[in-house]
Simulated assay, not measured.
Amino acid sequence: MTEKTKPPARRGRPRSLESEAAILQTAYRLAAGEGLGAASIDAIARDSQVSKMTIYKWWPSREALLIDAFLRQAAALLPLPDEGEPLAILRDHAAGYAKLLNEDFGRVQRAIIAECIATAGTAALFADRYLAARRQLGVALIRRGQAQGTIRSGVAAADLYDRIYGTLFYQSLFGWRAVTPRYARALVDSVLTGR
């Protein structure tokens, strides 16, 4: 490598995975246990034993940190595996999401979205940092099922994904119906197979 092609040296110490995990765990625990108000940068730094400067260095805002903490929790509680039968994976995933919408997870999700809207006037940060990655995985599963013939074709995979998860979130948010795992499985079958 010549001087011109050598990448610039990184400043500071590399991010510690252990510290990052402690910060994200603490942020989610405080938000779930005591509400978003308790999940201040001061409280997260104190409880995770990491400096506020480190947190501000790694996350551009409190909202970004809370979204990443939520994303970590979602990945642990609601994995979207890329191996297996797509329709069965999506049935199980939607059922798990429906169950969690009625627990702390759902309350934290709604609170983070509300804070993003209140702070920035939009939920774009939540969509960019959380929804986009999850949606991409779900859409890929639907496309695979369409290619295999187990999921109806003729409708864009992204539209089918949005019909399932948009419906579950909307109905949960406004309390139009009790969103249950059984209802979620039936919704997946209805949207993806027409049954």
Rank of each mutant, 00 (worst) to 15 (best):
A75I: 11
G154C: 05
I55A: 02
Y161T: 04
G84V: 13
D104C: 06
P79I: 11
I117G: 05
D162N: 13
C116R: 02
Y56M: 10
A88Y: 00
T119Y: 02
R134Y: 06
W59V: 05
L71D: 14
A114C: 02
W59M: 07
P79M: 07
R135H: 13
A64R: 01
F169K: 05
E63A: 14
A156N: 08
R91H: 09
R135C: 11
I164N: 03
L125V: 13
R107P: 06
S61F: 03
Y165V: 09
E85L: 11
Q73V: 15
R134H: 11
I151T: 10
Y56A: 09
S51Q: 07
D68T: 03
A95L: 03
A132K: 12
V155A: 12
C116T: 15
G154Y: 01
I164W: 00
A69L: 07
Y130M: 10
A39P: 07
D128T: 13
I89S: 08
A111V: 08
A127W: 02
Q73K: 14
R135S: 15
H93W: 03
A69I: 09
Q49C: 11
L131I: 12
A124H: 03
A39I: 10
I164P: 06
A158S: 13
L77I: 12
A118P: 04
A120C: 04
G138T: 11
Q148K: 04
S51A: 09
L168H: 04
S40F: 05
A95E: 05
I151A: 09
A157K: 01
F105L: 08
V50A: 11
A88E: 15
Q146M: 10
D42H: 10
L80W: 02
Y170L: 14
A94Y: 01
K52Q: 12
R107T: 14
L71E: 13
P79D: 07
W59I: 04
D47I: 03
G149A: 04
R62V: 14
A45Q: 03
Y56E: 04
I142S: 06
D42S: 14
R107Q: 12
E85A: 15
D128N: 11
I113D: 00
G149T: 07
L100M: 01
W59T: 03
R129M: 08
Y165I: 09
A118W: 01
Q146W: 05
R152V: 13
G138W: 00
R107A: 15
A147Q: 02
A127K: 05
A123M: 06
P60H: 06
L125S: 10
R163N: 13
L66G: 08
H93C: 07
Q148H: 05
G121W: 00
G84L: 09
I67T: 04
S153N: 02
R62Q: 10
Y165K: 02
Q146F: 07
R91W: 04
L78I: 12
A114M: 03
A133G: 12
M53C: 08
I151L: 08
A45F: 05
I67N: 00
A156H: 08
G106W: 02
L71V: 15
A123N: 10
F70R: 00
R163L: 14
M53P: 00
S61G: 04
L168Y: 01
Y56K: 07
Y170H: 12
D42A: 14
R135G: 15
F105G: 03
T119A: 14
C116M: 11
V108R: 01
S61K: 01
K52M: 13
S40K: 04
A140T: 15
Q109H: 11
A111S: 15
A38F: 01
A118I: 06
R107S: 13
A124Y: 02
I55L: 04
G96N: 02
G138A: 14
